[in-house]
Structures are given as structure tokens and as C-alpha cells.
Design a protein around this nucleic acid. Sequence first.
DNA 1: GCTTGACATGCAACCGGTTGCATTAAATAG
DNA 2: CTATTTAATGCAACCGGTTGCATGTCAAGC
Lengths: 331, 331
Amino acid sequence: MTQRKTPPTINQVAAAAGVTKSSVSRAFTRPEMLSAETVRKIFVAAEQLGYVPNHTARALSTGRHGNLALIVPDVANPFFPPLIRAAQSEADRFDYCVFLGNSDENPQQEDKLIGRFAGQVEGFVLASSRLGDEQIVAHAARRPVVLINRDVEGIPRVLIDSGTGVAEAVAHLAALGHKKLVYVGGPHGSWSNKQRRGAVRRSARELGLEVSVISNEFAAFESGRKITASVLATGATAAIAFDDLTAQGMLAELADLGVSVPSDFAVVGCDDVLGAATYPSLTTVSNRSVEAGKAALSLLIDILQNQAIRDVRYVLKTNLVIRKTTGPAKG
Amino acid sequence: MTQRKTPPTINQVAAAAGVTKSSVSRAFTRPEMLSAETVRKIFVAAEQLGYVPNHTARALSTGRHGNLALIVPDVANPFFPPLIRAAQSEADRFDYCVFLGNSDENPQQEDKLIGRFAGQVEGFVLASSRLGDEQIVAHAARRPVVLINRDVEGIPRVLIDSGTGVAEAVAHLAALGHKKLVYVGGPHGSWSNKQRRGAVRRSARELGLEVSVISNEFAAFESGRKITASVLATGATAAIAFDDLTAQGMLAELADLGVSVPSDFAVVGCDDVLGAATYPSLTTVSNRSVEAGKAALSLLIDILQNQAIRDVRYVLKTNLVIRKTTGPAKG
DNA sequence: GCTTGACATGCAACCGGTTGCATTAAATAG
DNA sequence: CTATTTAATGCAACCGGTTGCATGTCAAGC
């Protein structure tokens, strides 16, 4: 076992440079207050000792930790990693460190995490929070909070509106001559599912298309496979799925059944989490999770820097990404 | 703009309870030193004021922040989210908070992040670090470090040995009658890539198969597509790819080229990040990233709690998961 | 030549806890 | 009943910085 040596403190640098610690502190925070010569001396001494200001001590006296927390329901859900990454790199630009919390879709866990982080972060980004509105409001009263995909009055929030993209998808299919569609649903309690289903129905009515809806509680590859037979049984020529994973499962099953896509049947996904990585590459609705992560972070940083709590409601429209699973209706 | 009120301090609680702050401090850290009555009084006062010990102040005087950092090359690479999640929940069990860092596959960025975190974490987990050995050793001299998929003497590490699974893959292909293989590589600095390439070569030699190696710096769907032509040009009948994404890109390109899998050409992935969600479903090597994340975290916590730096080398064996992209060699 | 600033630096309090040692009161021993 | 532990609490220094105010120096202004 090796003994790790304790890092140099501001006092040691001060002694080495022949000044007091106030000057060392200033050299690092407001060098314009000091003579160029003094600053130089201090930097030389600091460099030589390998001094780095102690983050914790600084946070204690200034009250600014330079930390943020990002809490998501499930890191492993492919919707989140790109969002996390975008948030990270935005935080990075402003020299903030970010704590990541995984609530496991559990409100208690989410609350616990917020409590753990609270003492050492300047603000929170809660993505798809599972907390009740009152709890969110309570936390926001203590520290700045920005929400993603959660619409609470008075709390700054970034919302991804999948309705616009879904409407485009319906219009796209109509233009290709499809007359009958199926919407393959997602989780019962999902706000997105409700929003998407509604958008399909509304657009279809406007364009005079027929729509059937198939429920499918678990949005995943396997359930997409299983639901495919009943999708075909509706007699529709195109399907819009709740998400990409479901759509991907349908593609696999359709291939097994010898139904070729898009010539025999068209498929549209939602969330664009797979990129072009399906075969054929999937026509889908963009998700904008990257922008959402970035926007939420910069909103939070803006609030922190201006000490202002603003009621922002930032809506990101989505659009259709046309790839290769949609084409002219058969016949 | 609302004014957030500053949280109560230890002094306010002390005043309210009619004791000094030492006692309040002890009530929260070593209550057995105080009389039951005093502890009760203090808790009542604390409860009433909504007092929570200030994490930062505590960290400053004790030197223990209760924070850890986990740095990965790319959060959005599907290999990492499950690992991150497992690490998180392990940290959670011990009340540690975890900072997540994304190095963007860039050693400079990785170094910068480590520096940013250094002041406020007790230790690091570096997953698939892109740093040089010397840099890793230097950081480890300052703070406890545990590595994942990086083999540096003297630094505790958790290694996913894909060699065993890759060897099984080669044997599997040999048994199916394949005589000539290609290994499609991954990132230059990747330890896993070196290990996999070596395992393919060794097993092939033992079984009398011919192997060619194609380098491919960026492991991703698109680069898998691009490399496919040169893979076919080698005249091999089967490919083992550095990872599933590369393999998936190859599948898409092979389908476009009219080469059917597995009857015309066999493909094996690595890391099993896609499950059965490719078409055809991919034969691949299991990844064990969940165990790796969990093991690394508990190793780190163990080191922190016992103040001991041990030279641990924890190896996780992998195996082949046979699905539908491998079959008998043609002709 | 003396006053008045402006500028550079030092002094000391403060951020909110923790902790070794001193103090006091109560309990046990002799 | 006094001497000695022992248990409970207070005192004050310390963790490593930041910052308002005081001090000192030197140059410009009159």
C-alpha cells in the first residue's frame, strides 16, 4: 500500500511565492487586481508545486459548486444516452460537472437521488420525471430545476412534440396512395403514446384515411414481432408504430413472412433511436432528444448565471425522416 | 423572480436546541457519544428547521466527499449504458453519488475531465480508457482508480475477456466448414480490439484456418457498411467483427449487395448489445458489461473503505451466443 | 512640498461543518 | 466523605479557500 501525498494548499503556494494567500486566491480568480509581476511569481510557484485550487473549499465559501445533476428514468433506454451525451457536452462548455442519476422509473428513488445531490449541485435537469407535480414544484422552490418531457406550469421545461412528425408521416403515406393505416400502440400510461395515437387519428380523418389501432403494451423488438400478424390481418397497407423498437421487430417478422418492405407493406417508426441501422433503413419520426438535452442544460445554466427564474416552455417540433421502409401503396 | 431562502445551518439548529454546534454535529455523526435526551432535542430542532448537513462543508473538513466518477468514451455507444446503470445502482447501495464523464474517445478530453472531477471525488472508474499507461498510473498515484477493459499492471482492473467467446466463435465457424475468415477491427487504442484480434489469430492457427485482418478505426454501423466490400474481396466465407454495430452495418450492406446471410456469408458480432434485434438475428459474443460495471464499482468502494490499494485483476469470461447469421460454409 | 487618489497587497472574518482536548457534573471506588 | 473515573458537552482550532476593508506606496495635482 502506497501513501498518497496530500495536494499542496494555497498557503504553501503563498509561502513559496512570498505573498499572502489572498494574493494567491486573487491570482486565480481576479488576476487583473494584481500586478503582472506578482501574478507571474504566483503562477510559477503554483506550477512548481502542482497546485490546483481546492474545488470543495471554493464551493464552501462561494456557494457555487459548478455541479449539476441530470436524472433520467433509465440510462439503458436508448432514448436517453444521446440526450445525456448532449447535456454533458453542453455542461462541459461551461465547465460544469454533471452527476447522473438513474431513477429506475421509481418516484421514491428519484426523490432520494435529488436529496443526495441537493447539497452539492446548483441545479437539476429532470428528464421524463416520474415525480408528482407537487414534488417537482417543491424541489424547484429550493434549487433551479429544468424539466424535459414534463409539462408543469411555472417550471422551465423542454418538450418534444411528436405530434407534428406523426402528422407528417400520415400525410406522407397518404401522398403515396395508402388508404388504410394501422397505429401500433405503446405503454398504456405513456403521455407520448396518447399524443401519437391522437395525432394519427386526427390527421387520418383530415385526409380521409381509414385507421385502426392495435394496442401493444410493451414497446420492444419481440412484441413488435408478435403483433405483426394482427397488423397484417387488418388489411392495412401501412403501419405507424409507437417506437422504433416495435417497428424493428415488425420488420424482422415481415421479412420472415416473406412480405417485402416497402413494396408490399410500409412501416414507420417513432423516436429515431436506431438511426439508419435497420434493414431496410427505417422511416421514422425524429426524436430531437439531443436538442432537448442541450436546450435543457443551457436553459439551466442561463438561469444559474442570471439568477432569474423564468417560466419557459420550449417546444421542439419533430418531423418525418424518410428512409426506406415507406413507398407507394401496392396496386 | 422568487428569492430562494438559504438553508438552515448547524448553528441555527444548535441555538434552537440550546446546545453548541459540536453537539449537533455529533448528533448526526456519532450519536452514541451524546445522551439520548440531547440527541432527541437536536433532532426535533433539526426536523423543525428542515436542517440537512451541508455536504460541502463536511467534505472540506473530513476529506470524504462521498462522490465517485465514472468516465466512458461514449455514453451513446450501446455497450456503455447498461454498464453505467449497473455501476450507478451499486454506488447507490453505498450512498455514493456518481459523476459521469464522456471523453468522446479523446485522451485530452479524458484528462481534462479527470482534472475537473479530481477535487471532489474519492475515486475513479475509467471504462475503456483512451489514456496512455503512464497517465493512468499518474492519476492512480493521486486517487484510487479502477479500470474496466484496460490492463495496466498494479492498477485494479476488471477485464471482460472476449477471447474465450471469440475462440468459441472461431471453433464454431470451423465446425461449420469455414476455411477462411476475416477479422474486422476496431479503434486503434482499444485493448479489447487487440485482445479480440489476437484470439482470432490464435484459434485460427490452432484449427488450421486462414485469417485476414481488416482495420477499421471507427466502430459503427456506417463504417461496417463501408468496409464490407473489402471484406468480401478477401475471399473469406465468414467474418468476425470487432463489435455488433460494425456487424450490423455489414449485414445491411450484404443485403444490399444481394449476398445472403448465412447461406452465402457468415457474420459474427461481439458484445451482444443488440440482442436479437438485427435481421437475421446476430450470432455474437456475450458482453457481461453489467457485471463489469458492478464489479468495478464495488472494487472501488472496497478500496476506499479499507484504505488499501490492492493489485486486483478480475477477469470475466465470455461465450458465444449462436443466433442466425452463421451457418454451414458454402459449397 | 503637501495632499489626494489610485493601485497593489495584507489582514482577518467567514463559509459550515468536524474533532482533539478541556471542563464539568455525576457515578463509582476506597 | 473525599478521590478517581467516566460520561456528556463545550471550546477553539482547523479544513482551504474568498472577500470587504485597512494599510501602505507611489505618482499626479495644486
